[in-house]
Design a protein around this nucleic acid. Sequence first.
DNA 1: ATCACATCCTGCGTGC
DNA 2: TGCACGCAGGATGTGA
Length: 285
Amino acid sequence: MPELPEVEVVRRGLDAHVVDKTITAVRVHHPRAVRRHEAGPADLTARLLDSRIVGTGRRGKYLWLTLDDGSALVVHLGMSGQMLLGPLPREDHLRIAALLDDGTALSFVDQRTFGGWMLADLVTVEGTDVPFPVAHVARDPLDPEFNRDGVVTVLRRKHSEIKRQLLDQTVVSGIGNIYADEALWRARVNGARLASSLTRSKLAEVLDAAAEVMTEALGQGGTSFDSLYVNVNGESGYFERSLDAYGREGEPCRRCGAVMRREKFMNRSSFYCPKCQPRPRVRRG
DNA sequence: ATCACATCCTGCGTGC
DNA sequence: TGCACGCAGGATGTGA
């Protein structure tokens, strides 16, 4: 499931291979993959044709290719999206294909079709240029201008559980269900705690832990749990072996040995150590 | 305004 | 054997 580290791995791969290439043909194979491009598939293909890719960018789980006309091709991988470079893949789930002037194909393959491509103009938000559809997304913990203490202030102000806020991309971006559980485990905080009940230093610890675990994952090429996530070179990540919380129900906590639990939260699974990360006494106090 | 939840989608694993 | 169902979850739209 691509979260920030996986998306960054894809961006780096694209940056190394597609910058200065020109798009010579585009075909949309599934309209759902371009549903966020409101002008429609024909507009997207027409505008991409003969565009030169001049750079890449990312914020949170969004990545984009900047084009020579000043616009950006925004990509969200959703749950299962892949950006593949090479020969045109013979794939049931090929959604969009672009040919580049060096003869390679840049393909978007996405089994569950939660992801997609769209074209958008850049806008300046707090001194940084991002595509319009990304303007509402907060800076991520690996952004050099990430303001950790500012995020702590936002977290404490809201009447909402800490995990819910970690997953809110308008508060802090790039964190999904897996890295949220990992960060909370490292900081010894139960995700059901109201953020307003935690000290500023504890919240800072949670955010630092999120940055750490994502940096480590990035160093190892991103996390992958099945064959759905493959990086730009078609290589799976392997960080899953390093996970301390996610997916470890019934296994001993690597810190204290207590049996790890799994609980439903926000219609998702949350994994935590009942001893290191005790549940709040009063729920939704 | 703020918060919470259903919804989208497909493949896989499980149980009857 | 085959079918039905639950589960995975990022982002968004809607309802409270």
